[in-house]
Amino acid sequence: MPSVELKAGAALPALKKTIVQRQIDCYSGVRPNSIHTDLEWAKQKGFPRTLVQALMSTAYVSQMMVKWLGAGFVQGGQISASFINPVYEGDTLTARAVVKSVEDVSGRPHVTVECWCENQNGLKTMVGSASGFTDQLRNKQ
């Protein structure tokens, strides 16, 4: 992972994901009467296509944070997210994060990032924050 400066405003490398139905099936489990895996049911509920489960977006944030902070996220990391727009099968999401603050927490260096996912039209689908400790960075920078 390229070096990310530990200062407010520094951006983490973005992650881009195009989500196909098979991935939704694997994440959510194939069930009848599911807005995630049953297209007819999703349409009955008013959606144009099956919905990507919102939690999948937190997995992208987790991926960015584990790649960067390593054990400092696996043990002591946090994610807070609001899901503000639906994500549909076939959408391409870009997960982004920008350093918001760096401070000491319980005597350990700690970082908080603002994070979000946006779809191929630039519409934000998830907004929130993530945090963790910076004393065990991967690929020491």
Partner: peptide, 9 residues
């Protein structure tokens, strides 16, 4: 539908 989540690992 999932609206929000907060997780501590």
């Amino acid at each position: 539908l999932h609206a929000k989540i907060h997780c501590e690992f």
